[in-house]
Design a protein around this nucleic acid. Sequence first.
RNA 1: GCAGACGUAGCUCAGUUGGUUAGAGCGUCGGAUUGUGGCUCCGAAGGUCGGUGGUUCGAAUCCACUCGUCUGUACCA
Length: 514
Amino acid sequence: MAKKPNKLRARLPRGFVDRSAADIRATDEMLSKIRQVYESYGFDPVETPAFEYTDCLGKFLPDTDRPNAGVFSVQDDDEQWMSLRYDLTAPLARHVSENINEIQLPYRTYRNGWVFRNEKPGPGRFRQFMQFDADTVGAPGVQADAEMCMMMADAMEALGIPRGQYVIRVNNRKVLDGVLEAVGLGGEDDAERRLTVLRAMDKFDKFGTEGVRLLLGEGRKDESGDYTDGAKLSAPAIDAIVEILEASAIDDLIDYTNDLTFKTAALSKFAINESFEAGFRELKLISVLVTSAGYQSDRISVDPSVVRGLEYYTGPVYEAELLFDVINEKGEVVQFGSVGGGGRYDGLVKRFTGRDVPATGFSIGVSRLMTALKNLGKLQTADVVAPVLVTVMDGDTEALGRYQKMVQDLRQAGIRAEMYQGNWKKFGNQLKYADRRGCPIAIIQGSDEREAGEIQIKDLIEGARLASESTDVDNVTWRESRPAQVTANEADLIETVRGILAAQAEDRRQANGD
RNA sequence: GCAGACGUAGCUCAGUUGGUUAGAGCGUCGGAUUGUGGCUCCGAAGGUCGGUGGUUCGAAUCCACUCGUCUGUACCA
């Protein structure tokens, strides 16, 4: 048998999605809520393009695991390499550096945009996704970091996540450096093991004390049988690190009177080093600042297991985490992780300018957060009513003109409306179309009505309800009963439509229970 | 990247020890009904059985490789 010629198969590259009307509207809603928060903090928008020269995005990797993966790159006409941005921070550093003479520091700015990562997608993880960032450039003090944390908490609540269902966890890269120094991994030779230790600490939330002990020690095997090699630290070092991770507040760890000292048994074996001291003092300061601004530890909490990226952070780091379970389509609880984070990156602008320009900022993973809210049913689906459909009974030019006029009149009265654009000769299809499209009302005017100066106005929502109540009526009878349909004077079109729409809106409100 | 599970129509899935032309429900489209949505009835379209190669007289079924999806893990700027 001869094979048919192969059809081209329509398919989307993995990790990319088409966005539906509902998604787009929900995203817009989210963005405007976040924007409102940032604006109220006095931040101004700025936008940079999706492409940058690859060297400007920078590779700060001490992390040599994956030398070139993760980024989409192309070569320009002049053979310079360009890449799609993989976050909004590096492009901002480029923008600030390029315009450093015009920009008034400290520069408080926000922006949202698509970013691209060439890596394996997961639930709520895409290769193109939206981030919403805010940064303060040229502010050296931790008060800028504290403000970032507060703003992030406010953004979470503005998005409808109730207090107690999220937390902003704060740590300090200097504390982590102090830990590494204290367990004897300060030297250049131990770079690899330092990463292993940091990654292990980062897993505390996921694997708990025992899992982290394994990762800090010999290694850990997961359920699928995959094995992760450990950092092979000594037992006392592991004890000390675990004690830091398990602390519920920094005051449990540190005595802040005069010279800092460790309070706990396992930690007291270590001296406070310079990094520890600087890090803990900054954390304490942030903690005091946010508390006096009214943000208690249920919203912003110091947590030494926060590690974040291993690249450019130099001081405080923070992370927004959702505390509710996220359920996927199959009803399984999926581990979700953080929906945003950031930190202080004092070295990023200096790469371009040579000048010290300290900066701090954070990023909200809009796409990711939206997946979580959607799965939870907390996504505010914007209440967009489908258009009123003006049906076409006669296809002659004069009649079409009359229908167009009706549509325009409706539009000018602020009512979404459209004229049927399919094959008008099958009238049943017009109403079927309206029904499937979710149209609230259909307008009908044939020659009979035309001569009488009337129109038929059909309430499709009410009609659907009536239809579902009487299922055994035969089609002809049902049709001729013209359910939920009123005859109106041509001049009363707008008024009548308005009345029906208002009644429908009221019904929806009652159905929603508010 | 590593490990496991799974790939049959737009969707959800049947498909016997390898045996004619691969099926069902839902959905889609057309008709019954040239001016009325739902119900009902009739009809139609829709398949590289994920792909390639192999074993066999014969493969959706067995084998190898490969691609994709999901879950875990690694990485996550």
